[in-house]
Simulated assay, not measured.
Amino acid sequence: MMFEGMRVAITGAGRDTGRLLAGEFAARGAHVYASARDSAAAAATADPINREGPGSAEAFGCDLADPESVRGFAAALAARTGHLDVLVNNGAAYASGPGLEDADDDVIVSMISGAATGTTLLVKHLLPLLRASARPDVVNLVSGCGEPGHRRSTAHPAFYAAKHAQAGLAGILSHRLRPEGIRVISLYPPDFVQDGPRTAGSMLTARSVAECVLFAVGQPRDCFIREFRFEQEQTSLRPVPLEGAS
């Protein structure tokens, strides 16, 4: 199996793309440390993995917006393993709405502190475990909202701010950690759907995003894939015809 014996930590693993990634890594033999703000949701991801194999999983509560929770998750991993092969920074709070007033203050604080501060602290505290790995990777599910000039999402401005901060972290870490052999891989998908047809004219799916992650992590160690950039689905790029036009 491609990832047999690998140790993989995934944030935001209680649902959607994080849960999918946990299952895909485990299906290839990895041991997954699945974290979520709701520990019961993380357990709901880990339990079927442990029943079905071939990989295995452990569940953890980790609120990325709470520094103490982040440090606790990192300490729990250090107590269980001497190394970490892959850290997937997937967890991030989300809100939609074009105006700053479309989200309460506490929602804005949670979005920015989780994706920006929380991700930064988690990488910091897990670096000793990553450095102890023979094949360390840090994978960041950033979002197209972290790309300069991106304005196509319905996400709240604070989500854009959080993802630009995460993109800045990923960029400098890729440069500074490469001499140590730590690959930093970032994905910038546009708004995507969890399920749907995987055709050229359809929206990007979570499974396609997950397969990009698996592909990058599976490459030989001389292959440093820094970023995945995506075109948006083509239907949204077509001009809207004027009324009465044919």
Rank of each mutant, 00 (worst) to 15 (best):
F3V: 05
R7P: 03
V8W: 00
A9S: 07
G12L: 08
A13L: 01
R15D: 14
D16S: 08
D16A: 09
T17M: 13
T17I: 15
R19C: 07
R19T: 06
G23R: 03
G23S: 08
A30W: 00
H31F: 01
H31V: 00
H31W: 01
V32W: 00
Y33C: 00
S35V: 01
D47W: 01
P48N: 05
P48M: 07
N50K: 03
E52C: 03
P54I: 13
P54L: 13
G55I: 00
F60W: 12
F60D: 00
G61T: 14
C62I: 04
E68Q: 07
F73I: 11
R80A: 02
H83V: 04
V86F: 00
V86K: 00
N89Q: 06
N89G: 05
N90W: 06
N90L: 03
G91I: 03
Y94R: 06
Y94M: 14
A95W: 03
S96N: 03
P98L: 14
G99Y: 09
E101K: 01
E101S: 14
V107D: 15
V107K: 05
I108R: 12
S113H: 13
G114D: 07
G114F: 06
T117A: 14
G118N: 05
L121D: 10
K124Q: 14
K124R: 14
P128E: 11
L129T: 09
L130M: 10
A132D: 11
A134R: 12
A134W: 06
A134N: 10
P136E: 06
D137F: 13
V138G: 03
V139H: 02
V139M: 06
V139R: 01
S143D: 14
C145D: 10
E147D: 08
E147A: 10
E147P: 02
G149K: 03
H150I: 10
S153H: 06
T154G: 15
T154H: 14
H156I: 15
H156C: 12
A158G: 05
Y160Q: 09
A161I: 10
A165V: 10
A170T: 09
G171D: 09
I172H: 05
I172A: 10
I172T: 08
S174W: 12
H175Q: 11
H175G: 05
R176Y: 14
R176W: 12
L177C: 09
E180A: 08
G181R: 04
G181F: 11
R183P: 12
V184R: 04
L187Y: 15
L187E: 09
Y188K: 04
P189R: 03
D191H: 10
F192V: 13
V193C: 05
Q194S: 09
P197G: 08
T199I: 10
M203Y: 08
L204K: 01
T205H: 08
T205K: 02
A206S: 14
S208N: 04
V209R: 01
A210W: 11
E211P: 03
E211T: 06
C212S: 05
D222P: 04
D222N: 05
R226K: 07
E231C: 05
Q232P: 11
L237Y: 11
R238H: 14
L242K: 02
E243V: 13
A245P: 02
A245M: 12
S246P: 02
S246W: 07
